[in-house]
Nucleic acid binder design. Structure first.
Lengths: 163, 163
DNA sequence: ATTTCAGTTGCGTGCTGCAACCAAGTGGTC
DNA sequence: GACCACTTGGTTGCAGCACGCAACTGAAAT
């Protein structure tokens, strides 16, 4: 069961291309302000879609270290895009929430991104794009699950991971 | 013509998720050796698929600065994965080519990646994965074209771009 | 009191772009 | 042909961002 190795190999090339475009496309004209260093913008977007949550939630969901989120949260807070309040039930945790400004800024950014993609895919039928979005969304869901599962074990003998 | 803004917006979420997984998934267990710093591995893979070409070709195709490619080429050369020879017709340019070792290493890596994806998408029908690969490949082709076109102009008044 | 957990900070590293630079080719003028 | 400016492919110095790990603080939980 499952796809053949060849089929999976076909996925590698566009995936690689997509990775490479991170720096380029999304960083070229698609920044928030000059202050928010782009990576934080992704976090902000996530927070908008998730609603109020804690730092560790974001870290887990984005599969990055908590320290990374912590720093980005600081940047966003200083920029007035989110607010932080201690959880009344557990004063260790900070509950994060976007400000009105943050919501607005994200909406603008998302729109700019969508426009940009629309320009790139101007020859596509709408249904085709929707199909791609659906497939990619499903794939990402499964891939992230697999990433987390196989990452938590970390027993595969392949220590010395990231750095 | 073209997809609706809403449809494009649907694409943003999985795209963002995919970006976030760069660090994680592909860096966890999918490194070449401990020497080749991962980004160079992508370049090597590209070189395998492209055949002998020059530094600037790779830079243009990956939409990165030539200096980046230059450094990665150095790393790959030191690792014995590629060779460099001056173009007889124009002694400024270096022609790059993968070594036999480089080819072998890339093949192994691609296989590992394909296996990994196969595990993540184990519940998928083969045809569905192929469909995703096709759509994503087409999309990336159009997106890169659009990136390069709108990037070369650089007239959009949005100077002070990348950094 | 000890342990555990959420979050923060110090530090080192990898990847990137820009600016400055070198070397080689191109085109003009004398 | 010789000499000059100009362009082009590539490299290196430098600075910036993003990240992970280790060490730490303060608040639960046991």
């Amino acid at each position: 069961m499952g796809p053949t190795p060849e089929t999976c190999g076909e996925l590698l090339r566009p995936l690689r291309a997509l990775m490479g475009l991170k720096q380029v496309a999304l960083q070229r004209g698609l920044q928030l302000s000059d202050q928010v260093p782009y990576a934080a913008a992704g976090l902000l977007t996530e927070l908008v879609h998730r609603g109020e949550c804690r730092v560790s939630d974001l870290a887990h969901h984005r599969v990055v270290d908590a320290s990374v989120v912590s720093r980005q949260v600081n940047q966003l807070e200083q920029a007035g895009l989110i607010t932080r309040r201690p959880d009344p039930a557990d004063r260790r945790v900070s509950l994060l929430r976007t400000t009105e400004l943050g919501d607005r800024v994200v909406a603008e950014l998302e729109q700019k991104k969508a426009e940009w993609i629309g320009e790139a895919l101007v020859d596509w039928e709408d249904a085709k794009v929707r199909e791609l979005a659906r497939l990619l969304g499903d794939a990402m869901s499964d891939i992230r699950r697999h990433t987390i599962e196989s990452g938590d074990h970390s027993d595969s003998g392949m220590r010395e991971g990231t750095r």
